[in-house]
């Protein structure tokens, strides 16, 4: 169910990116798509009633170098979280570039409407 909602969010983003005429709204649509994927990744690693995958000092036995088993069973999968962090950084970079291109285009054309920004023909 939750996965279906993620897919719905992805589709809303795609719809926004494809249909909208305003450049900023297109950028927002792309951001929504990326966030839907991030949400999906986070939910993949979720364990019901899980804890954050960070070891506390009390759960680690320094002498035997063993980790308490209740932590291992209860913690959520940390890998998707690492992936999401990386993908957030990437989308931050591409978002910054997209916004600056939008602003530059606005300075040149005086509009955000992509139907009026048409110097390149098919």
């Amino acid at each position: 169910m939750a996965y279906a909602l993620c897919f719905l969010l992805f589709m809303i983003g795609l719809y926004c990116a494809v249909v909208k005429k305003n450049m900023v709204k297109i950028v927002l649509g792309i951001v929504i798509m990326e966030y839907a994927v991030n949400l999906f990744l986070i939910m993949l690693g979720y364990v019901k009633g899980g804890v954050a995958p960070i070891i506390e000092r009390s759960q680690y036995d320094g002498a035997t170098k063993a980790i308490a088993s209740e932590f291992l069973n209860a913690s959520v999968d940390p890998l998707p979280q690492a992936l999401v962090l990386t993908s957030i950084v990437i989308s931050l970079g591409s978002l910054a570039l997209m916004i600056s291109i939008c602003i530059r285009t606005y300075a040149k054309y005086g509009t955000f409407d992509i139907t009026e920004i048409r110097r390149l023909r098919g």
């Binding site: 297109i26 798509m33 390149l120």
Partner: peptide, 23 residues
């Protein structure tokens, strides 16, 4: 700028699709 924006929008959509596939 126009070409870059067009390329960037389609490229970002492609990247989102790829990331969804990876997930």
């Amino acid at each position: 700028l126009e070409a870059s924006f067009k390329y960037m929008v389609l490229g970002s959509v492609a990247s989102a699709l790829v990331l969804f596939g990876v997930a």
